[in-house]
Nucleic acid binder design. Sequence first.
DNA 1: TTCTAGATTTGGATCAATCCAAAAGAACAA
DNA 2: TTGTTCTTTTGGATTGATCCAAATCTAGAA
Lengths: 360, 360
Amino acid sequence: MATDNPTTNRDNGSVTLQDIAAHAGVSRSTVSLVLRESPLVADATRDKVRQAIKTLGYVYNRGAAALRSSRTSTLGVVVYDIANPFFGAMVAGIDAALHREGYVSFLANSEDSTERQQRFLERMREHRVDGILLCPAEATDPGLVDTLAEWGMPCIQVLRHVGQAPFDYAGTDFRLGVRQAIDHLVALGHQRIAFLGGHAEHSATRERWQGYRESLERHGLSYQRLLRATVTRRDGFALIQQLMAETPPPSAVVCHNDLVAFGAILGLKRMGLEPGTDCSVIGTDDVEEAELGDPALTSVATHPYAIGEEAARLALRRIDDPDGAREQVVLSPRLQVRQSCGTKSPRTSRLTSTTQGSPA
Amino acid sequence: MATDNPTTNRDNGSVTLQDIAAHAGVSRSTVSLVLRESPLVADATRDKVRQAIKTLGYVYNRGAAALRSSRTSTLGVVVYDIANPFFGAMVAGIDAALHREGYVSFLANSEDSTERQQRFLERMREHRVDGILLCPAEATDPGLVDTLAEWGMPCIQVLRHVGQAPFDYAGTDFRLGVRQAIDHLVALGHQRIAFLGGHAEHSATRERWQGYRESLERHGLSYQRLLRATVTRRDGFALIQQLMAETPPPSAVVCHNDLVAFGAILGLKRMGLEPGTDCSVIGTDDVEEAELGDPALTSVATHPYAIGEEAARLALRRIDDPDGAREQVVLSPRLQVRQSCGTKSPRTSRLTSTTQGSPA
DNA sequence: TTCTAGATTTGGATCAATCCAAAAGAACAA
DNA sequence: TTGTTCTTTTGGATTGATCCAAATCTAGAA
């Protein structure tokens, strides 16, 4: 609907506080108080000012406000691979939580490059964001957290964390996730369980490996096989074949993420083996596509949307209270059992209801 | 690396132009010129100033600069479903293109709600973004484009478009995509080709339907079956079964997007039919997962990353020249042939190299 | 040496808000 | 009427940069 501009703002284009003040017969300061919903102003005055704001088609200038108040209502979000559906869901969660509080967020995609990440962080600092949600790129210097602290920039780490202990963090309990997967496999009678994946040295990978090793130990299993440096479908495809050629081969593999698991399933098929029968496969993340495969993939659900919401909440809390105690929110994953572990469930595949729409 | 703060900025916390000016023995104005890389300053002066900036650990305040210059180096990006991998890739493209120009972008997820979309647009206006990339939510009022124009806000529509003709737009040629799919099917001997999908009345759906109808006509095919309101996997799953129960059933279906196609494949299997033999399936988008399925999905590749880059480029151009002629960039899709149309290719599935990493 | 054109540099006004201490107004008691 | 307290309102300073017209500083020419 074309709003016909009432007072086609003077020559330059924008109506300011001054203009509404004049129109409402009050001072700039009073208008400012109204805008910030101060309880100080009298009701009658407030109404008068609101009316003027409407009549003149005033648009609040957050930039100018930020200059004086040093609060921008702005957050920086840095992820390393926005094309990954996992991050898409996470960003959706962040967006929803921030939206409620009137915040908006800059999104940056580091592509797992520390240089890009650094540039983004500096740029966000120049834009005076109130805080940063950071999924640190792979080889991130642990000192980065201290640098941000020196900048006086609240920072919530998400999913991965670097640096020394008291920091804000939101993520999932990867260790528990792997434990759940292995418990499930052991209950099904598996004895030789391998772990596929983990790219490099960061917390999220270390936690998974820890979970793997301690679970084997707890169950008293002697077979242990951990293949690193696999993180893509392609890796899963190649490495499962290498693994199955060994003697003895594993009877089950737990994968670093669902992509690796998809690759592994494809690899098994390529060898003429049947996933779920000749070798069980469990993924991590439970992405939307997990239930699509043939067989549908059993996966450790890590709830990216919830993590995003949680991270945003933490950030807002930290901004309100910069010196409060650091918090770490670690959500519990849940094993989503499907068909890739041989337990042929009665239903073929229950399509779950999702909010996932389609492009265009 | 912890930078040890040289001149632990006076009491309040920030070093300003004034401070560097004093330290370098020049005026504020000169420092400002140096920061903006003006060719006016003498080399010696420039060096002196640069040195001072480093020494004092100065951080440029873009908010303050924007207040005077009314350029924020900031862009708003509004999509309707960031959890969809298609948009993830698109946002990655946008991000890459903007990064090169020193721009950062606000990302907002409308969830296909016009109210949310409206609030976001207003908020971005308050933040004085230089322009907006908009994938309009479903029932968007065509007048929205005019409203934005009245705001003096450059707006590039992406993927979908609303409103009257001269507008900026970046998208893909959906009509051509469907045509390619149908030409392929006809060449394989198909006569009864159905179309699955399209959610509501927006340009991207209309274009596909147009492509469907005109292709049938061009090939002189009389069978025509277009099932609307399908956009999710669940829809595809249900509707293919309805469709295959008809007499005669189609011998092939072209789907609105890959999600619908995945659902359709699952639906065929559920009926005991073999996708690619009993009924061929073609998707749209060519998401990463298309090659994973069994059978691997033939799909019309729509290149989201490239669309994102193109859209960002358009936006920057429009910001530089607000009154220039509107541009519409329509990329050509390309049919990615795999196994879901019965042509069993010799290789099982070639995993293409991708930049897609893994979460955490 | 003086003049002039060109290259640099500068100070004051400005952008649009918030902050804050002080002023004004209202309400009530002495 | 005056004083006191509480509620509202206000103007001037401030935030940190850019804009712009004017001032200053070169060189080279006259």
